[in-house]
């Protein structure tokens, strides 16, 4: 809700505080598979860190790469796209398109020395509640290790 200002002083102000860094993460989860798996994780009371902010989309194929770029520029420390496993897409082929788009996006980021490992794509089917929880744990942990997205607090972006 209220954004905590983290005592930023200047363009290159270091924000990493004494406490452990808590990454802000965005997840785009498809309605049919990954969102269902997220519910399943809840029903089976599997625990994962609360850093992920889920956004439900009908299909992972609806995730325009500009959404991911916008999230990163807005300071997301990581973005994860969750879709139906290849071949399983409710919309026939949405996840195949996602795969190409995200592969291209990651290449752009990588070539420019922007950290493409902040963008994850994972296929999590409706029955894989455990995989969902595990993936969220791994993702949060990996992003925590990376530290803040360097774009996070730059006013000059």
């Amino acid at each position: 809700m209220e954004d905590k200002k983290e005592g930023i002083t200047g363009e290159y102000g270091e924000t990493a505080g004494k406490e452990e860094f808590e990454p802000s993460l965005v997840g785009f989860f498809c309605n049919w598979c990954t969102s269902t798996a997220a519910d399943l994780a809840g029903t089976t009371r599997l625990q994962y860190p609360p850093n992920i902010r889920p956004i439900r989309v009908m299909c992972s194929g609806a995730v325009d790469p500009v959404y991911v770029l916008r999230a990163l520029c807005s300071g997301a420390d990581g973005v994860i796209i969750g879709g139906c496993p290849p071949g399983d897409c409710h919309y026939i082929s949405g996840n195949y398109k996602t795969r190409r788009r995200m592969a291209a996006l990651k290449t752009i980021l990588k070539t420019l020395g922007l950290d493409d490992d902040r963008v994850w794509v994972r296929w999590i089917s409706a029955s894989e509640g455990a995989k969902f929880a595990r993936t969220m744990r791994e993702f949060t942990e990996a992003m925590r290790k990376k530290g803040p997205n360097p774009l996070k607090n730059r006013w000059s972006i």
Binding site: E22, A38, D39, L40, A41, G42, T43, R45, L46, Q47, Y48, P49, P50, N51, P54, A133
Partner: peptide, 17 residues
């Protein structure tokens, strides 16, 4: 969904949840 996707999966951290 603040139950399956929140209350039930972030039990240990009420503040952050």
């Amino acid at each position: 969904n603040i139950r399956e996707q929140l209350a039930w999966v972030h039990r240990d951290d009420g503040l952050k949840a």
